[in-house]
Design a protein around this nucleic acid. Structure first.
Length: 263
DNA sequence: GTGACTCGGAAGGTATTGTG
DNA sequence: CACAATACCTTCCGAGTCAC
């Protein structure tokens, strides 16, 4: 077998192990047999373009990253100091498309529940987390696609602060400092309605579902709730929570009706 | 309590079989 | 013949048990 297949196989194995996924799990996601995965990883079996495409989707890397084992297939956040340029451009790792989604989803949430007294910043973080991960579990596609870091208080979308700052500058939302049961609370209120044309029907459905389930909870309740979700549990403190881990969710967190395996 | 042993399940490798 | 799936094998690891 050509050396290139061995290199691609190594890369796939590395990505799979990093995602804490067994060969069996990966084979199910790819729709091939488990030994086929074993053979692909060892370079004993050729890999098709279709399979490469699936892998790139599963591991969130480009096809080029899979084919070119020289480069590190990491998704790096821009860290460190950022140059202040005249152009007010977003220098964070959210594609423009997702930035729009983020803004509209946030406005949608704030219009619906932002005024409720239990909805502070931490609850909003968790609502966003559940919206993103529920949608990914259900449709295997990203809604906002934000990067959530596991920290002490719960999943934190790293892009949030910058986008919110920008939205406040643009007078799309406003920040309100208040108190909730003697605890300081940061609330955000919308200054405009969301542009519903930018949200798909199935996206709104998932958002509404999350809001129905969770928007009544206060910070500590939703914290306790989120801390038993598999993606959260399988992530080390300070690490980004892997979207792929939603497929190992258990009830009541799982939002997808998986097909029975007896057919 | 702890070290040795056994057992069972999960994971991964490979020989064999089936198919176009 | 090339490739993919099935079936079987080995290895590893954790849980349980028992003697000391």
């Amino acid at each position: 077998m050509m050396i290139i297949y061995k290199k691609i196989g190594n890369r796939i194995k590395m990505l799979r192990e990093k995602a804490v996924m067994s060969q069996d799990m990966l084979s199910q996601r790819m729709g091939i047999s488990r030994p086929a995965v074993s053979q692909i990883e060892s370079g004993e079996r050729k890999i098709s373009a279709e399979e490469l495409q699936k892998l790139s989707h599963i591991f969130h890397v480009s096809m080029d990253d899979l084919l070119n084992p020289v480069k590190e297939p990491e998704v790096h956040l821009h860290k460190g100091k950022e140059e202040k340029t005249a152009k007010p451009q977003m220098r964070i790792s959210v594609p423009q498309k997702n930035l729009q989604k983020f803004k509209e989803v946030l406005l949608y949430i704030l219009n619906k529940v932002g005024a409720k007294e239990n909805i502070g910043e931490t609850v909003i973080y968790k609502l966003l987390y559940f919206i993103d991960f529920d949608f990914y579990e259900k449709y295997e596609e990203q809604l906002i696609g934000a990067t959530y870091i596991k920290n002490k208080y719960g999943p934190t979308p790293v892009e949030f602060v910058k986008i919110v700052e920008r939205m406040m500058a643009d007078k799309e939302i406003e920040k309100v400092k208040s108190e909730y049961f003697n605890f300081p609370q940061t609330k955000y209120l919308p200054c405009r309605k969301p542009d519903l044309a930018k949200l798909m029907a199935n996206e709104i459905e998932v958002i509404d579902d999350v809001l129905n389930r969770l928007s009544e909870m206060n910070g500590s309740q939703i914290s306790a709730y989120s801390h038993s979700d598999v993606p959260w549990m399988t992530t080390a403190d300070g690490d980004a929570i892997e979207y792929e881990s939603v497929f190992y969710r258990m009830l009541p967190y799982s939002v997808r009706a998986y097909a029975e395996e007896n057919g």
